[in-house]
Simulated assay, not measured.
Amino acid sequence: TPTPVIDADHNVLLLLGGFPPNEAAWEPDVTNKAAEAMEEAAKEIYTGPKWRRKAGLDDPVPCRGSHHAKHVGVAMGGGQRYPQNLAHAARNVVIFAGLFGLKSLERIAGWTNMLFMAFAPDLHEYYRAMYAALCDWDQLQQRAKHIRRNFSERHSVFTTATFNFGPVTVTLPHIDFGNLAWGWCAVTALGNFNPDRGGHLVLWDLKLAIRFPPGSTILLPSAILRHSNLQVGPNEQRFSFTQFTPAGIFRWVYNDFRTDKDINAAKSTTPAEREQRKQDRASRWQEGIRMYRKWDGPYGGFNTHAPVLTTLYLHTTLYLH
């Protein structure tokens, strides 16, 4: 059962989405097949002559862990003039296309999208509208390459995904500074491991370790909560699939498809417009928080069958001392 975690103001801060209830085929048809596909993809990407790897793009992400990881989708930052799909070696592009074409991964994305829409509808709409506006702008540009979605709009509103190929994915404590401050990212655990003994999601600021079984999904504000995950046992495997949208893309769309640098340098920008932008920046956090949905009452406002928060503490999490 999806279980929200609320803050002191009764905002749904993060969501323990789990997997669809009464879905007996979820493990064999979704969890196992997605994990098997990621394992095979990792063998194709990370074995063979070094010339098959494009320098820099195939390196692990040091600040998050020593496991293999790949970011796929739209990015903005690092001096880019406009959002565009991340570059990969042609061989890897084919591999990623195969992964995103899998029914199992599409079902994970669809389940995640439904959770996002149900428990944070205003925030979900903010993501959806931004991505739609970006794609509309992109189609008007006179360029050979256009933005490519990882999934259809019906299945996901996130622009970017990360395949944590493992084979033992253990992330170090970190904050995703590049993500939208109040936004959510979605993490789906995959692999073959005992979730009672390892693989827990650790939220250091909240002093929580959350049981995180294979095939389940958690949505959280990864830009403000320091998080990591625990080691799994010997001879066990853990992969994960993460979906998110970089904050730079939101900023680009907010700027009428321009960078901050372009706006500040533009002679057409009036003092009144500069002052308005300054005020917008000052109020942006509060406006973002208002996109969270309130949780009404201890037994749930969205779903009267949702478990109370004390049940979450007793059965799903352990306090860290």
Score class of each variant (00 low, 15 high):
Trp184Thr: 03
Leu180Asp: 04
His146Ile: 06
Thr159Lys: 07
Arg149Ala: 10
Arg143Glu: 10
Thr169Ala: 14
Gly183Ser: 10
Gly178Gln: 13
Leu172Glu: 08
Leu140Ala: 08
Thr159Arg: 07
Pro167Trp: 03
Gln141Tyr: 06
Phe177Arg: 14
Gln142Asp: 10
Gln141Ile: 01
Gly166Ala: 11
Gln141Asn: 02
Cys185Pro: 00
Thr162Cys: 10
Arg149Trp: 14
Ala181Cys: 01
Glu153Leu: 15
Thr171Trp: 00
Trp184Ile: 04
Leu172Gln: 09
Thr160Met: 13
Asn179Trp: 13
Ile175Lys: 15
Val187Thr: 12
Phe165Glu: 03
Thr162His: 00
Asn150Pro: 04
Trp182Lys: 09
Val157Asp: 09
Val170Ala: 08
Phe151Cys: 06
Trp182Ser: 10
Thr162Arg: 07
Pro167Ile: 05
His155Asp: 14
Thr188Leu: 05
Phe177Ile: 08
Val187Phe: 10
His146Glu: 04
Pro167Phe: 03
Pro173Met: 11
Phe177Glu: 13
Thr162Lys: 01
Phe163Tyr: 13
Ile175Asn: 02
Gly178His: 15
Thr171Ser: 14
Thr162Tyr: 01
His174Asn: 04
Trp184Val: 08
Ser156Lys: 12
Thr171Arg: 04
Thr160Phe: 07
Thr160Cys: 12
Gln142Pro: 00
Ser152Ile: 05
Phe163Asn: 03
Thr169Leu: 03
Val187His: 02
Gly183Gln: 07
Cys185Ala: 12
Arg143Trp: 01
His155Leu: 15
Gly166Asn: 07
Val170Thr: 13
Gln142Asn: 11
Gly178Arg: 13
Trp184Leu: 15
Gln141Asp: 04
Arg143Val: 09
Phe165Asp: 00
Ala181Tyr: 10
Trp182Gln: 04
Gly166Tyr: 10
Arg154Ala: 15
Ser156Arg: 10
Asp176Lys: 04
Phe151Thr: 04
Glu153Met: 15
Thr162Ala: 12
Phe158Arg: 09
Val157Cys: 12
His174Ile: 02
Asn150Ser: 08
Leu172Asp: 05
Thr169Asp: 01
Gly183Phe: 09
Thr159Gln: 04
Arg148Ser: 02
Ala186Cys: 12
Gln141Val: 02
Leu180Ala: 11
Gln141Trp: 06
Val187Ala: 08
Leu172Thr: 09
Thr188Glu: 03
Ser156Thr: 06
Trp182Ala: 04
His155Tyr: 14
Thr169Gln: 00
Asn179His: 10
Ala161Pro: 01
Gln141Ala: 03
Phe151Met: 11
Ser152Ala: 15
Trp182Thr: 15
Phe158Cys: 06
Gln141Thr: 07
Trp182Asp: 03
Thr159Glu: 01
Phe165Asn: 05
Arg154Lys: 15
Pro173Ser: 03
Asp176Ala: 06
Leu140Tyr: 05
Arg154Asn: 12
Asp176Gln: 06
Ala144Gln: 11
Val187Gln: 04
Ser152Glu: 13
Glu153Cys: 10
Gly166Phe: 10
His146Phe: 03
Thr159Cys: 15
Phe158Ala: 04
Asn150Tyr: 06
Gly183Val: 05
Thr162Pro: 00
Phe177Trp: 13
Gly166Arg: 11
Ile147Leu: 15
Ile175Ser: 05
His146Gly: 07
Pro167Ser: 11
Phe158Glu: 11
Arg154Trp: 12
Pro167Gly: 00
Ser152Pro: 07
His174Tyr: 06
Thr169Asn: 06
Arg149Phe: 10
Ile147Gln: 09
Val168Ile: 13
